[in-house]
Amino acid sequence: MRSLLKEPFVQFVVLGTLLFFGHGLWERHVAKSEYTINVDTAEMERQAAIFATENRRQPTDEDLQALLFAHVEEEVLVREALKLGLGDNDTIIRRRLAQKMRFLIEDTRNMERPDESDLRTWFDANKDQFIVPEMRGFSHIYLSPEKHGDQIDDVATSLLKQVSNDNWNTLGDPFMLNRSYEPIDQIALERLMGASFAKSVFDLIGEDWQGPIESAFGLHIVKLNAVKPEIQPSFEDARAKVEAVWSETTRRSANNKRLRELIDKYDIEVDE
Rank of each mutant, 00 (worst) to 15 (best):
L159G: 02
E75I: 05
D267I: 14
A49T: 14
E182I: 11
K228D: 08
N169K: 13
L97D: 02
G24Q: 12
N55S: 10
R258C: 03
F69N: 11
G194K: 06
L262N: 03
I152F: 11
N225I: 08
G194D: 11
L143Y: 11
P8I: 10
L192P: 02
T250G: 00
P174G: 08
A98M: 09
D264P: 00
A125S: 05
H23A: 15
L67E: 08
T91F: 07
A70Y: 02
D61R: 12
D185I: 07
F235K: 03
S139N: 05
F130M: 07
L4R: 08
D264R: 13
E7Q: 15
V245E: 06
L25N: 10
N255F: 01
L159I: 15
I213L: 15
D166V: 04
A216C: 01
M111L: 15
K147I: 15
P229T: 08
G218E: 13
E116R: 04
F21I: 12
K199S: 14
I105M: 09
A42W: 02
E230H: 01
D208C: 05
Q232C: 01
I37G: 03
H29L: 14
Y181P: 09
F197V: 02
D153F: 06
D107E: 08
F138I: 04
T121K: 15
T53V: 05
T41C: 00
D40R: 11
